[in-house]
Design a protein around this nucleic acid. Structure first.
Length: 479
RNA sequence: CGGGGCGUAGCGCAGCCUGGUAGCGCACUGCGUUCGGGACGCAGGAGUCGGAGGUUCAAAUCCUCUCGCCCCGACCA
């Protein structure tokens, strides 16, 4: 921690009240604020820039895996959403519905999309005729609305931004491969870019997406030891193909229903980044997603010095190979700026003052550890690049170590309940019965976050009923 | 929808009990001095006191109704 561990002004200490700390950091870092409409938020430029970086990387990965972008409309006839039984059952409580347009009662109410499977299914049924039309690999960047009871900036808002991929395939195997592949993309993004370690796995029947055959998820652990679903990928089987009659003709002239998938990641990841990496000084951004990777704080005493130093700062910036901002604000002291950029989580600070100019050096401070060093200007670009890599890796390692330190194998229900009070991920045997799952949720608020992929099968007995279990699953209280 | 709290300047609050010219801190504007870990002085601008009704000579303050927001619980990316 920088500066002897003093807290940032206006930010509640994380250990004291995590929820309040989170709200304070989001506000202090200028990421977002509440809108006049309950549950909605305004994403401010600095927060949106993180989203833009997220979009850029994800979009690249989607294109690399053969997907194309398209856009489907915000309004969906309510009858479409009703067409898939599970789907409407799951989404009905959180639908926003438009009943008036142009001053007149509409003949058919329009749902504001909570997700787009149905409208896309309707269109896919028209677009797909032949096996040659498959696979159909499309992604959409957009917004959706889910009328949430308990909103929280970024983590759960009534309207949120996301991407939703929707694909159609000839065979169940291909659909399954796609579902897995895209979960892998999310994992790569989260681990390599957001520096958030995740546990990939399958959702239980109770937790899966409304209308899915099955759902995969990547689960992260936040700084208060709760679980955060950071991305999901659904194998929809033929459920939507049936409801929307999406068929293709195969090589033998026979008609078949397609197999579809959908997968999404939302602005929630920004909340995840705050909750996983933030500290008492504010945000700590992973370099690869940071809008500003290095900030230059010039230090001067007199006007002539100021000009000289700003000129030197600009010369440095021109040589650096990362996203650099020079904080030239005239009426603020360096100390204020140090704190300000720490709140905003900028990974590297470059201090440049008269002494540095003289010695052809700078002072470098890394946000993750607060460590300070002097570095020669001659090799600064290399040093900053290396530092950014180190910080990226260190944030990931730190988050991973934290998760591991707070993951526990529990074998009996009493221990489960006790440990659950302390938080963390609980690895426990589960027989697969929804009744045991429901009882745990009811009694402890912990849910099955996922049935991890990379778990060796291991016989055991269910933590609730003692029945036969094939392996450990992850339980936790979740956001 | 249940339980709690709060609406007074952009933000955070005091004033209300005991009615009498609307205040403080931060932020903002201007000028000057500062500047290597949250600077200071001087001068300024800024408020339908959430809304409606009532009591009163007089309401931010008392009464009634209402609206909104936040936090805690039941649904969820």
């Amino acid at each position: 921690m920088p500066a002897g561990g003093i807290m940032a002004k206006g930010v509640t200490p994380r250990s004291e009240d995590f929820s309040q700390w989170y709200v304070d950091v989001v506000k202090a870092a200028d990421l977002a604020e509440h809108s006049p409409v309950r549950g909605c938020m305004v994403i401010k430029p600095y927060g949106y820039a993180i989203w833009e970086n997220t979009q850029r990387e994800l979009d690249r990965m989607f294109k690399e895996t053969g997907h194309q972008n398209a856009y489907f409309p915000l309004f969906i006839p309510l009858s479409f959403i009703r067409r898939e039984a599970q789907h409407i059952e799951g989404f009905a409580p959180e639908l926003a519905v438009v009943t008036i347009g142009g001053g007149k009662e509409l003949e058919e109410p329009l749902a504001v999309r909570p997700t787009s499977e149905t409208i896309i299914g309707e269109m896919y049924a028209k677009w797909i005729r032949s096996h040659r039309d498959l696979p159909l690999l499309i992604n959409q960047w957009g917004n959706v609305v889910r009328w949430e009871m308990r909103p929280r900036l970024f983590l759960r808002t009534t309207e949120f931004l996301w991407q939703e991929g929707h694909t159609a395939h000839a065979t169940a195997e291909e659909a399954e491969a796609e579902t897995r592949q895209m979960l892998g993309v999310y994992r790569t993004f989260l681990e390599q870019y957001a520096a958030i370690p995740v546990i990939p796995g399958r959702k239980s029947e109770a937790e899966k997406f409304a209308g899915a055959h099955h759902t995969y998820t990547v689960e992260a652990m936040t700084g208060d030891k709760k679980a955060l679903q950071a991305g999901t990928s659904h194998n929809l089987g033929q459920n939507f193909a049936k409801s929307f009659n999406i068929q293709f003709q195969d090589q033998n002239n026979e008609m078949h229903l397609v197999h579809t998938t959908s997968w999404g990641m939302s602005t929630r990841v920004i909340g995840g980044i705050v909750m996983v990496h933030g500290d008492d000084h504010g945000l700590r951004l992973p370099p690869r997603l940071a809008p500003i990777q290095a900030v230059v704080v010039p230090i001067w005493r007199k006007d002539d010095e100021r000009e000289r130093i700003l000129a030197a700062a600009q010369a440095l910036r021109a040589r650096l190979r990362c996203r650099v901002h020079i904080d030239a604000r005239p009426d603020l002291t360096p100390g204020y700026k140090f704190n300000d950029w720490e709140l905003k989580g900028v990974p590297v600070r470059i201090e440049l003052g008269p002494k540095d100019i003289e010695k052809q050096q700078v002072v470098l401070v890394r946000r993750d550890t607060g460590a300070k060093e002097t570095a020669p200007q001659a090799t600064l670009p290399e040093r900053v690049d290396a530092l950014l890599e180190e910080i990226q890796a260190h944030l990931f390692q730190q988050a991973l170590a934290f998760r591991e330190a707070n993951t526990f194998v529990v074998n009996d229900y009493a221990t489960f309940q006790k440990q659950n009070e302390e938080g963390g991920f609980l690895l426990a045997h589960w027989c697969g019965d929804g009744a045991c799952e429901a009882r745990i949720k009811e009694e402890t608020k912990a849910t099955i976050r996922c049935i991890p992929f990379d778990q060796k099968p291991e016989a055991g007995s269910c933590v609730v009923c003692g029945g036969l279990s094939q392996g450990l699953v992850v339980f936790a209280k979740a956001y």
